[in-house]
Design a protein around this nucleic acid. Structure first.
Length: 260
DNA sequence: AAAACTCTCAACCGCGCACAG
DNA sequence: ACTGTGCGCGGTTGAGAGTTT
């Protein structure tokens, strides 16, 4: 059987968009808003796949896009966020207003990788090329260990339950990723004092920013379900701090809690 | 001047997830 | 519990622009 295609390939245009197609898409979305990408092309009179329309809008036509060169501050922010999040481009993009995941991904591959190599840093591990090439030994850099631990926490599904079981530790400023030897690593904010590590996920449209429940409305199991769904979900109207076990106001100012 | 090569980035593809039925 | 559908993500591709030979 196999998966049905997202659209009929035979009757759709491919490749670069014409200015006429752009205008059609823009005026349609201005009139009807985003969403329902599958039916949008037909409704807008476009011979394009819905996916293609979505991509064109998100990466190129959206009015809130910044465009232009990346600043030095943006460079450093991307590097630091990448060290925490890995190739989670959409999450990184959420911290850079006006930038898209595609743009950041391209920029990473064409510029930043090279920049890091020139600094003697491996862009995958964010460790010095020397230490990467020698072995996995020793973790001679405590900061890097801490960074990689955070990255692990954010990326692996297996850590969801343990994370939710130890919110108190997080609240106390202790590090749940620490091993049992009691060594005190630096927090992410100490490692990157200049970036906001609240990691609330940015929202492009104000309508998404409302929430129906605060954490105080939920019992513990509901909160755990919320946290779990949040961690698994790619839905943007949530705050990552909540997925890490924080309660409202404990860790960040966003106060955005996803609904059940 | 032009061929060859390199770089950039818009666009595509396939997969996984959420959700409705 | 299962299936189909739509959306979003990350990896990859390739056309066109820019640079070098």
């Amino acid at each position: 059987m196999g998966r049905s295609p997202c659209c009929e390939k035979e009757h759709t245009n491919k490749g670069a968009w014409t200015s006429e197609e752009d205008e059609r898409l823009i005026s349609y979305i201005k009139l009807h808003g985003e969403g329902c990408w599958r039916s949008l092309p037909k409704a807008a009179g476009l011979l394009r796949c819905g996916k293609s329309c979505r991509l064109r809008w998100i990466n190129y036509l959206r009015p809130d896009l910044k465009r232009g060169n990346f600043t030095e501050e943006e460079d450093e922010l991307i590097i630091n966020l990448h060290s925490l999040l890995g190739n989670k481009w959409s999450m990184i993009a959420a911290r850079l207003p006006g930038r898209t995941d595609n743009e950041i991904k391209n920029y990473w591959n064409t510029h930043i990788k090279r920049k890091l190599y020139s600094r003697g840093i491996d862009p995958k591990t964010h460790r010095s090329v020397d230490s990467v090439s020698t072995t996995n030994n020793s973790g001679n850099c405590r900061n890097n260990n801490k960074i990689n631990a955070n990255r692990f926490l954010l990326e692996t599904k297996e850590t969801v339950v343990p994370l939710m079981q130890v919110p108190d530790n997080i609240d106390n400023g202790a590090d749940s990723s620490e091993d049992s030897n009691g060594s005190s690593g630096l927090s992410s904010e100490e490692v990157f004092p200049h970036i906001n590590l609240e990691l609330s996920i940015g929202l492009p449209f104000p309508s998404c920013q409302q929430s129906r429940f605060s954490s105080s409305d939920l019992n513990q199991s509901q909160q755990q379900r919320v946290a779990y769904r949040l961690f698994r979900s790619k839905t943007p109207d949530v705050c990552l701090c909540y997925g890490l076990g924080f309660q409202k106001n404990q860790a960040c100012r966003c106060r955005v809690i996803t609904t059940l």
